[in-house]
């Protein structure tokens, strides 16, 4: 699980062009949106595509993303339970 969390942090930085953020600066439980990493609605769409492309998880209802993308830890839990690749 720790390996998946690190992988997600690296993908987030690359996919969302978080140029000034280091992997070590993202805590497992830090909120990704709002006061945490400060992601926005366009980033949420990018994350939905990332889930499908890299882990074979297709969210039927985009509103599900709100809970899944709460933090890196929550994301990693969800991916490990639902991934198809």
């Amino acid at each position: 699980m720790a390996e998946l969390r690190e992988e997600l942090k690296e993908k987030l930085i690359e996919q969302l062009s978080l140029e000034d953020v280091e992997v070590s600066e993202i805590g497992d439980d830090d909120p990704l949106f709002g006061d945490g990493l400060g992601l926005d609605s366009i980033d949420a769409l990018e994350l939905i595509v990332l889930l499908e492309k890299d882990y074979g998880i297709k969210l039927k209802d985009p509103k599900e993303g709100k809970a899944i993308f709460e933090s890196i830890g929550v994301m990693a839990d969800y991916i490990s339970k639902h991934r198809t690749k």
């Binding site: 996919q15 366009i42 990018e46 595509v49 492309k53």
Partner: peptide
Amino acid sequence: HNDEQFLTPTLFI
């Protein structure tokens, strides 16, 4: 590269 799938919004916008 992605066979017309997995297109993200940022580049399009």
